[in-house]
């Protein structure tokens, strides 16, 4: 058996080629990458509600603190043993509170780290980009579902890879599996939103259940992207969700297309309540995509944003059957 190998081709040398084209080039300025810069802070007068809340907070903390001191003091008045037990109980309570605070702060810090990385990556030089992506990989490595994917990324990334190569590998090996997990979570939530809407007896209960499920979805997605937000982290995410929904304009566009398609082809055939349930599912899916955009350590690249259609079409098919 013989094997034919292609003869090595000669390296092309630099050269200048004449053209018949004349005139100056019209070079356009590159649009700056979207940095999602925070909106300029408007000068606001101190809100009376905030001042009152801060005052009340100090009052509550003061009362609790004094109560604790009195509680321990009273216990010691009944005997040393009781006093020590009371001190230990208060210390355990305070320790628990500090632990909770620490967990909250850690969750918030992870969230902030991911947000900082996302703002740095569009401006990073190739060499720096690798360091930023490795930092993002370190965040995702903490997620048990993605630790294997991160290990695979680390195994394939070589020192000679450029920043763009590293970004490509990170997208392929880590973000793609994370996106699939997030999409699965969105599908689950959309199905449940559909069901909640269908079986809920009152509009109020429907709204409450929808909000609870949406909150759970946001936390699920944040956890998939390695952020494990606590209460403060969830509030931060909700605030960003409220202010940054425009970040994924593509979602709205995809939604519009879906509505057009549904409006013409499907919705007419569905009953009014089923149509409402479909809209609830679509809203949940849209919320999920926006949460994905917020929690991903790297912005979606063109073509990576999951379409609403792909997330809810199976649901509608199931319903029609």
């Amino acid at each position: 058996m013989t094997t034919e190998t292609e003869a090595p081709r000669e390296r092309l040398r630099p050269r200048i080629l004449e053209t018949e084209e004349t005139g100056r080039l019209e070079l356009n300025l590159q649009p700056p990458p979207e940095a999602h810069l925070p909106a300029p802070r408007t000068q606001r007068s101190r809100s009376p509600l905030r001042v009152a809340a801060a005052g009340l907070g100090i009052l509550v903390l003061g009362v609790i603190g004094i109560d604790f001191v009195q509680f321990i003091d009273g216990a010691f008045a009944h005997g040393a043993g009781l006093g020590i037990a009371a001190t230990a109980a208060v210390a355990a309570g305070c320790g628990g509170a500090v632990y909770w605070l620490g967990a909250e702060l850690r969750g918030l810090w992870r969230l902030r780290s991911a947000e900082r990385l996302r703002s740095l990556i569009p401006f990073a030089l190739t060499g720096e980009l690798k360091a930023e992506i490795d930092a993002a990989a370190a965040i995702l490595a903490a997620d048990p579902l993605l630790s294997e994917a991160v290990a695979r990324y680390r195994a394939v990334r070589e020192p000679h890879h450029s920043g763009r190569d590293a970004l490509e590998l990170f997208s392929r090996f880590v973000l793609a599996p994370a996106d699939r997990l997030a999409e699965a979570a969105i599908r689950r939530a959309a199905t449940q939103a559909f069901a909640i809407n269908a079986i809920s007896p009152t509009a109020l209960l429907d709204t409450l259940l929808f909000a609870a499920r949406a909150l759970r979805l946001i936390r699920e997605i944040a956890e998939i992207y390695g952020q494990r937000p606590g209460l403060a982290g969830t509030v931060h995410l909700l605030r960003r969700l409220a202010s940054g929904a425009g970040m994924v304009g593509a979602v709205d566009l995809a939604g519009g297309i879906l509505v057009q398609q549904l409006g013409g082809a499907v919705m007419e055939r569905l009953s009014a309540s089923a149509a409402e349930s479909a809209y609830a599912a679509q809203k949940m899916a849209r919320l999920g995509i926006i949460a994905m955009a917020l929690c991903r350590p790297i912005d979606f690249r063109p073509g990576e944003v999951p379409s609403l259609r792909s997330l809810v079409s199976g649901l509608l098919k199931a319903d029609r059957q």
Binding site: R11, L12, P14, R15, I16, L17, T19, E20, E21, S162
Partner: peptide, 12 residues
Amino acid sequence: RRIRFFPGIVPV
């Protein structure tokens, strides 16, 4: 007249 310039292959 505009020219088209091929700079060769840049190795890494």
